[in-house]
Write a protein that binds this DNA or RNA. Structure first.
Length: 214
DNA sequence: ACATTAAGTGATT
DNA sequence: AATCACTTAATGT
């Protein structure tokens, strides 16, 4: 494994850097690159690995039978996906869909290793627990947002989050996509965006929205 | 020039 | 806030 990957691990996952654990990660992990919009794992697929995000961002969403979707949270470098850690024994099927938000580089850790390391390495255990906690907090934030915020507040929050994740104040998306992510209709999004533009919060063009007030 | 897709609007529930 | 029906604007071939 080359040095840039090791450096990256050190930057984002510093606290789980124990010599032996690092050696094991080198030995067992597979480097994977996915490009934007690629589906990393889909509903019902068997989970055989857990990802450590090195570069990029991944969006995690839920979908019901009628193909309505709802964004749960984003995961960034330094994160792992909690849904894949929920069951430590046996194989489980994914309850969520993970899509590359941008071009993303990650390390895939086989689920068996994950289980072995849980008891073998204290750093690994606390990393997983902490990550699980973070994911839960983000989920709570999303729930709050759905329960207590009106659609216009949800929309601007989403745009800001997205701008942050992409490290770019210009969010490249369509009104329809936003409607899908927030599980509302395109017309509603169009009208709310217009209001936001009039109040100077954003500026829009076809296929992109510039968030002025981050 | 034409077809396709994105975005805007008014009316209704 | 959702849905419908329709218009207008932008973009690809």
């Amino acid at each position: 494994m080359n040095t840039s990957i090791i450096n990256n691990l050190q930057t984002h996952y510093g606290y789980l850097f124990q010599k032996e654990l690092l050696d094991e990660i080198e030995k067992n992990a597979v480097l994977k690159k996915v490009s934007e919009a690629e589906i990393i794992i889909d509903l019902g697929e068997e989970i055989t690995f857990i990802p450590l995000i090195l570069e990029g961002a991944v969006k995690v969403l839920r979908e019901n039978e009628q193909e309505q979707e709802l964004l749960l949270y984003f995961i960034e470098p330094g994160d792992t996906c909690a849904m894949t850690t929920t069951c430590c024994l046996g194989t489980v099927k994914s309850e969520i869909r993970a899509i590359a938000e941008t071009d993303t580089t990650m390390l895939l850790i086989p689920i068996q290793q994950m289980n072995i390391w849980m008891s073998k390495y204290k750093y690994w255990q606390s990393f997983i627990l902490q990550s699980y906690h973070e994911r839960l907090m983000e989920l709570l934030e999303t729930i709050d947002s759905i329960a207590f915020l009106k659609m216009d507040e949800r929309l601007i929050k989403f745009l800001r989050d997205k701008a942050k994740i992409n490290h770019n104040e210009i969010v490249k998306t369509t009104h329809q996509e936003l409607a899908n992510d927030l599980n509302t209709s395109r017309v509603v999004i169009s009208r709310l965006l217009k209001k936001l533009e009039n109040t100077g919060v954003i500026k829009m063009q076809r296929n992109e929205i510039k968030v002025l007030q981050l």
